[in-house]
Design a binder for these strands. Structure first.
Lengths: 225, 225
DNA sequence: CTGTATCCATGGCGATACTG
DNA sequence: CAGTATCGCCATGGATACAG
């Protein structure tokens, strides 16, 4: 938080916000994370020490409020001041969606993808009973190749080991393609036609799957002509 | 521009934008600067080497276009992609205005203030003939104590040495007060009443002066209750 | 679960001078 | 006017291990 020596409100805002990871922590809080380890999971490459430091700074400037429950477990929430960063983050995301489309392989993190899908799954569209979708990213190393998404009632869970339930649908593709589908960079129909995606299971399930999974919020952002 | 290893568009946007000074260079371009030295003047504490580096990066990612004229003089302009950062910068400024109100003495740069006033003076409100306003910041060291704003026709100029013209109005105050008036943090009437501001000259001129000078764009942002 | 504690390397950035 | 060149620091932040 080195000062810019300017009274301009943009400069004053950036003194707080332009430090590495800061906006991503805020984004994570906006997405609903409140626990230290949830924030870590949303930013896996951030060291815990740095996360602590950022949270302290954000607390000091009034963006975040830290609360400890009776058991001593900490949680973090956005204050009204922090909540007002939402339009900023939305605009940033929309701009990034429109103009920073190129993704490097290092941007393709299966944990982040699955975690992001899980947390925004439109539960109300899924069948009542337990429904299990298995993702297989053929291009990934064994440890992160297979993922199971289990939806039941009003809960969605993910595992990276076979939970043993009957699988209703299997999705076979590359991590990049799945990320692109999630971001709305490509359509399911196109990926299927290009045979970069295969969906196994009853055709009724296969047909509904795209809607069941949904897309990341920013997928709706119109792209430049 | 170290990568975050995330496909999230907010993260991709921040890879470009969270480097120190970057947004302020963009803000300066949005305010109308196009020359290297104009950009420097808008960010006086930034080293020229770093400005070059930032401009190169912004050019590479497509935010800025560099053009050389016949004489070899460079100018920088926002591309459509860069222009679309305007809502981001506006939101950032609005947030900074609302929530980062405390200004340190090191934020009070008279050059930036006068330069900012000069470039947004509402010329059409001023008298036809030459009009000269002299600012005196009693709390500042001799070198930056006095400033002359000369408006004539469709041009506004500033000097830090007496240009020798007859002065139509004199403004005597502290730099902090003048900054606060400019930012809309206080009203002229309040500062006058508190005797932290004195305006010398014909009463008709003194009455019009606040309108002649105007306020920074973000001054209109409503403050938190 | 929620952090601390270290350690280390790097490279970002500030400062200054200089040039075609 | 529009940058280069150089230098050196120190703070940032990455990695890892450990603790209440």
């Amino acid at each position: 938080m080195t000062a810019y020596g300017q009274f301009c409100p943009v400069a004053k805002a950036m003194e707080v916000l332009d430090e590495r990871w800061t906006i991503l922590v805020v984004r994570e809080l906006m997405a609903g994370s409140t626990r230290f380890n949830e924030l870590r999971r949303g930013n896996p490459k951030m060291s815990p020490a740095l996360l602590t430091k950022r949270l302290r700074t954000l607390e000091r400037v009034g963006v975040v409020q830290r609360v400890e429950d009776a058991a001593g477990r900490a949680s973090y929430r956005l204050t009204p001041c922090g909540e007002e960063l939402r339009p900023v983050v939305e605009q940033l995301g929309a701009w990034g969606m429109r103009w920073i489309g190129e993704l490097g392989v290092e941007d393709l993190d299966p944990h982040l993808l699955i975690w992001d899908i899980r947390r925004t799954v439109p539960l109300e569209l899924w069948p009542r009973g337990r429904t299990v979708v298995c993702f297989r990213f053929g291009d990934q190393p064994p440890r992160t190749q297979q993922w199971w998404l289990c939806v039941q009632g009003d809960e969605a869970d993910v595992c990276d080991v076979d939970p043993g339930f009957a699988v209703d649908a299997g999705v076979e593709t590359t991590l990049r393609t799945m990320v692109e589908l999630w971001r709305g960079d490509r359509r399911w129909s196109d990926a299927l036609r290009a045979e970069e995606l295969r969906v196994d299971g009853p055709s009724s399930v296969a047909r509904e799957l795209p809607r069941w999974l949904g897309q990341m919020t920013f997928a709706a952002v119109p792209r430049p002509a």
